[in-house]
Design a binder for these strands. Structure first.
Lengths: 159, 159
DNA sequence: AAGTATGGTGAAGCGACTTCACCGTGCAGG
DNA sequence: CCTGCACGGTGAAGTCGCTTCACCATACTT
């Protein structure tokens, strides 16, 4: 037993904060996406498409860290929503190229706008210094987290 | 257009970090819980039970911010797993009291241990000062987040 | 040409969650 | 007392994300 708040306690308290942010952020994203008729998983795929351009489903599966079968389902949903098309891959007749439609591009622009808005709402009150400190600390935590989770490779994310 | 990295860009970068932590942390928790035959949702309920003691399902539903119907299903799972029992409420014959079994208590101890271990792995490399800065910044973000999300009330969380 | 690896999908199933309907009980007001 | 409404909990049915296994068509290798 050490003092009234041991170093261990403080670390657990920090973890609690992170988890709570996780929960609340998840709720906010789920809700705001649902308002646009989207789901988090489908949006993640669309968002990934924005970064990499038209891709095969295999590439998307690897990028999202999920199974090929799952991507098939997500793309199905996006096709039904008119946000994405499946086109034949010019050099490999097994593969299909997933490409955003015009409507999909619009949605992506809107998502980026929402992302910037949320970032402003969450971090607008922090000074540049404090923001830097936060990012640095999170980067350090991320490093340890990536070492802990097999396949810790993610990319940016929306709203 | 401002400089090469505008204030807006830096906030978006910060949001990216937070989201990535969210994703990775979610994976880690899901995986480590699955190794114990648990799921995140069921564990959250059990964890809540640890904090409040035997509770009715209505109370649990409110505490977890979910529906009563959903709690029924989660408790079903925990009962099947032998971690929890449904007992009649002594003063209200409509309600059922959900209570951890001996096995459930053991699991809770193990979860708390895992939580402390993870907190150590993630934050062990940060000085007390930097840890304080992180917690403060997260608290500020949480405040804004709670204002943004309807019903932003969460409690602690496991592994 | 034969054998194997790869991209993608059908089928089936689990877990979390929702909505709607419904039952049994608690708690008033008349 | 007893009628009526509120509340705790559950059945039924459906959506979404995701998984595993089997399987097809195409590509690549030797």
């Amino acid at each position: 037993m050490s003092g009234p708040t041991s170093a261990d306690d403080r670390r657990v308290a920090a973890l609690d904060r992170v988890v709570e942010v996780t929960v609340l952020l998840g709720r906010d994203m789920t809700a705001s996406l649902a308002a646009s008729g989207l789901t988090v998983a489908r949006t993640t795929l669309l968002w990934q498409l924005r970064a990499t351009g038209p891709s095969t489903q295999r590439v998307l599966a690897d990028a999202l860290g999920t199974s090929a079968r799952n991507v098939t389902g997500l793309v199905d949903g996006l096709v039904d929503a008119g946000l994405v098309t499946r086109e034949p891959h010019p050099g490999d007749r097994r593969a299909t190229l997933v490409t955003p439609t015009a409507r999909g591009e619009e949605v992506l622009v809107e998502l980026a706008r929402g992302q910037a808005e949320l970032a402003g709402q969450l971090f607008g009150g922090l000074s540049g210094e404090r923001l830097d400190g936060l990012v640095d600390a999170l980067d350090e935590v991320l490093e340890r987290l990536r070492a802990l989770v097999p396949g810790g490779a993610t990319s940016g994310s929306p709203s």
